[in-house]
Simulated scan of single mutants.
Amino acid sequence: MDVKIWTLDTMKLAYVEHVGPYQEVEVAWMKLASWAGEHGLFTERTKSFGIYYDDPMKTPAENLRSEACITIDKEVPTVGDVKIKEVKSGRYAVTAHLGPYDKLTESWTELAKWLQESNEECAGGPGFEQYLNDPHATAPEHLVTLLLLPIK
């Protein structure tokens, strides 16, 4: 596994929370995309992230917490389920997952093994996934997702 250490800059995110199976987070994405489209927030600089707070091996599926997020660079009014937050800069172990989303767990498991064998230590925050292409316009085998694990 090829892992790089990156320092991410502080990011301002618009997000919609989701509680339930991670495979059902699409509902949150639809709400966020609809709102973002209405406010003209999708640009070439917009980044899409999923933030995952719970380990699906330890937490019942109905209690899994996640957020569908996009970066924003201007002030916008929020409505309904859309919220705004800032994620502070920090160090992350980063690796790329190539292929369908239903295989992401395998890449997260490999990244966890890498962490155990490295000299790095988990910072204790949630893991992020950065989606580099549109799953509605990209074949599953061509999807590219960055896995970002916060480290000290």
Rank of each mutant, 00 (worst) to 15 (best):
H39M: 11
L104D: 08
K88G: 03
P56Y: 05
K103V: 00
T59E: 09
K47A: 13
E62S: 13
V76M: 07
F42Q: 05
R45L: 10
S89Q: 10
A68L: 03
D73N: 14
R65L: 02
Y101C: 06
E24W: 06
W108E: 06
E106H: 11
C69T: 03
K58R: 15
S66M: 10
T43D: 06
K74I: 03
K31D: 08
K103T: 09
G37Y: 09
H97P: 04
T95Q: 11
K85E: 02
T109I: 05
K103Y: 02
R45H: 13
G37N: 15
P77R: 08
L104C: 08
S89Y: 01
V27T: 12
L41V: 03
K85S: 06
I84G: 08
F42W: 10
W108Q: 05
N63S: 11
A93H: 00
T95S: 14
E110V: 00
T46L: 10
G90P: 10
T43K: 10
T59Q: 09
S48M: 14
D81F: 07
V27P: 02
I72D: 00
H39G: 04
M30F: 10
K85N: 04
V76F: 08
L32W: 12
I51W: 06
L98H: 12
H97W: 06
A28D: 00
T71H: 04
P77L: 07
T43G: 06
H97R: 05
S34L: 12
T78M: 11
P60L: 09
L98R: 12
L64W: 04
E67M: 09
A33D: 14
L111P: 09
L41R: 10
W29I: 03
R65H: 07
D55L: 06
L111N: 09
K103A: 08
T109P: 01
L64M: 14
S48K: 14
A61G: 04
T109D: 02
H39P: 04
C69S: 05
E62I: 12
T109A: 07
L41A: 01
G99V: 03
A93L: 04
R91H: 07
S89R: 08
E38H: 14
V27W: 00
Y52H: 14
E62F: 12
